[in-house]
Design a protein around this nucleic acid. Structure first.
Length: 279
DNA sequence: AGCATCACCTGGCTGC
DNA sequence: TGCAGCCAGGTGATGC
């Protein structure tokens, strides 16, 4: 499932491919992919526009266009963005919902079996260059200002479970199910702890491990799970799944203390943790 | 207001 | 082997 590291990997791939190129032909075949405005409007507003450098906020990917608009893409659970240099020799796969032909004859393709992924063109942009539709997102962990003070401030007054707060995109943007579990384990904190119950030392550990886990995952180009639904822009699998210490490892020994990893329920979702060395 | 739960959707896996 | 049914998961809507 694409979270911050996977989206950042795709962003870096895009940055090597799209800046300076023009969308010469846009085809939207999926019925649900474009829903904030009509698919026809996306085609109209994107066709003929030249791309700038791709940016990211949390799990949202966005690319400025040469007329001030911004193309926004969210992969949600199963969305996959790929770039093909030679479209003629690469037939479209099932569940391809958007195809953007570029002026060098290459193509961007959006494949999304579960159809939760989303594309739209934003016209209103804040001072920071971020589309107003994304203004409700919390701080991004890879931004330079992110640290213990931000973490403490964002968790203050949050009575929910720590994992619920970490995966709430308004609190911190970019963390999902997998990395929340990995971060909690690295910080030795139980994911079902109350979010506002951390002392100073625990807050420092949490802030440090949010950055460390996500940066290491970016370095390893994200996590591809068993279903291999996440692939980067060139179709390659990520490598961080080999470093998962607790996620989807119920019953296996905790790499830190050797006790078995436990699967617990937080709300309706499962969480993996070591009840022996996380508190 | 703030928190919890549901709906959306398909493919992979489990268990009969 | 075949198939029904469950589960996964991010976000916005709905419920409490």
């Amino acid at each position: 499932m694409p979270e911050l590291p996977e989206v950042e990997t795709v962003r870096r791939g895009l940055d090597g491919v799209v800046p300076g190129k023009t969308a010469s032909e846009v085809r939207v075949t999926g019925k649900r992919t474009v829903r904030r405005h009509s698919p026809a409007e996306l085609v109209e507003r994107l066709t003929g526009r030249k791309f700038g450098h791709p940016d990211r906020r949390g799990k949202y990917l966005f690319v400025p266009l040469d007329d001030g608009q911004v193309l926004v893409v969210h992969l949600r659970m199963s969305g996959q963005l790929t770039w093909v240099a030679d479209p003629a020799s690469r037939p479209l796969v099932a569940h391809t919902h958007v195809v953007v032909g570029l002026d060098d004859k290459s193509e961007l393709r959006f494949v999304d079996p579960r159809t939760f992924g989303e594309w739209f063109v934003a016209s209103e942009v804040g001072d920071d260059g971020v589309p107003v539709e994304l203004s409700g997102l919390g701080p991004d962990p890879l931004s330079p200002s992110f640290g213990v003070n931000v973490v403490r401030q964002q968790l203050t007054g949050r009575k929910t479970a720590l994992k619920v707060a970490l995966t709430d995109q308004r609190v911190i943007a970019g963390i999902g199910n997998i990395y929340a579990d990995e971060i909690c384990h690295a910080a030795k904190l139980r994911p079902d702890r109350r979010a506002d119950s951390l002392d100073d030392e625990e807050s420092r550990a949490l802030a440090r491990h949010i950055k460390a886990v996500l940066l290491q995952a970016v370095k390893m180009r994200g996590s591809s799970l068993r279903d291999a639904s996440y692939r980067d822009l060139m179709g390659e699998l990520g490598g961080y799944q080999a470093r998962h210490r607790v996620y989807d490892r119920a019953g296996e020994p905790c790499p830190r203390c050797g006790e078995p990893v436990t699967r617990i329920k937080i709300g309706a979702r499962s969480a993996y943790c070591c009840t022996a060395c996380q508190s």
